[in-house]
Design a protein around this nucleic acid. Structure first.
Lengths: 203, 203
DNA sequence: TGTACATCAGTGAACGCGCGTTCACTGATGTAC
DNA sequence: TGTACATCAGTGAACGCGCGTTCACTGATGTAC
């Protein structure tokens, strides 16, 4: 049983990540405190620094988990045998659903900034790629003539636009009614873009 | 000369706002420190609290000024006698130019959060409205049948989309090439939306 | 399997510091005569 | 215009506290025989 130590270590890491995840989900990234997390995880304050180098590294692990959940949500939304336009619409809807149901975790993905001069580890940067790939996929069908590079660029634009529309709506204090209207607005928005792309491609 | 005191007071306020503006422009909102600002403004630390209730109020005044500059930039970009589509494109370009040339001040508009439970004063909230009005204006020509309410909603969506596209591009670390390509991408994006809107309206 | 020693994960009190805000003081502006 | 007093803007040292991180210690896990 050579792995008793490593086993405990992994368990502690997992508990810390889970505790941080819950805290962020409940109160937002800005309210995350090392003391709260370690208490929830059932270890001493210093324990955090035996499992991770610092709080930022812990947050990166939480964000990593959030991206995986997002990935699953979008995979569910994608339904292979639909038209590319339908698939883009479903991706946008899936993203909206995700943003609404995991509001704080979703915001944490964009709010977290490393201290000046630090960069996220490569493995985490790569996790962001899949999002772009998922969007680029229906685009290929919509505009087969487009180069992979252009498509990547277009995917980023499209993501930025959808993200922006959703952010600005969820940011607005007056919550309550929108959701349904927001979904309609978003649908129309994505359909317009998709139709525009198709029309241009047909020229 | 009954105004000597008030005059000095206004002067101090102006110096503090200007100092804070420069600091934010140079280093970003997150690095703003009361000590730096008061030193730059040539007053004692406590002086800030005779002119403003706290640092947040000072930041609101900086943001207010930033919105005015944005307003001017967009007014210049608007050129009344063009087609509504051209005007929308120019607005988007103007917004991009503004974001690029006043990167940190622009970001500060969105980064600044009041402490839990506080709200911006009404006069500042109203300053945000003009942006939506400016966008809604060309939309009216594009879709005369649309209700004012729908138009407002659509203007917000459009703003969110353009803002999102620009944000995600400027956020990406690899600065350098984009700008021109970003402008082209943005142009095409806005034209697609405008064309889509027009097509739908014609149905 | 049992004993003696070595290692190192985990502890939590203490450190350290950044930074917004306060407050007793003072000197410039305003008022009264 | 000049003098005596009152006010209050502005000063800056001190406060206070939140909070991430460290570090001397200890007890559980691992190793050697």
């Amino acid at each position: 049983m050579a792995g008793r130590r490593e086993e405990k270590r992994e368990d502690l890491k997992a508990r810390l990540i889970e505790a941080a995840r819950k805290r962020i989900a409940a109160e937002g990234l800005a309210s995350l405190r090392a003391r709260d997390v370690t208490q929830d995880a059932g270890c001493a304050l210093g324990g955090l620094y035996t499992a991770f180098t610092d709080l930022d590294e812990l947050i990166i692990h939480v964000n990593s988990g959030t991206l995986k959940v997002l990935e699953d949500t979008l995979a569910l939304a994608e339904v292979k045998d639909r038209s590319p336009t339908d698939r883009l619409r479903n991706l946008a809807r899936g993203y909206l659903t995700f943003a609404v149901t995991h509001r704080h975790l979703w915001k944490a993905l964009f709010e977290h900034r490393l201290p000046e001069g630090w960069v996220s580890p490569q493995w985490h940067l790569e996790e962001h790629m899949f999002l772009m790939d998922v969007i680029a996929e229906p685009l290929r069908e919509l505009q087969p003539a487009m180069s992979a590079e252009e498509r990547a660029s277009r995917a980023r634009t499209l993501f930025g636009a959808v993200h922006g529309v959703i952010s600005i709506s969820l940011e607005a204090r007056f919550v309550g009614l929108p959701m349904e209207q927001l979904e309609r607005e978003l649908d129309e928005f994505v359909l317009t873009i998709a139709a525009g792309s198709k029309a241009r491609q047909a020229e």
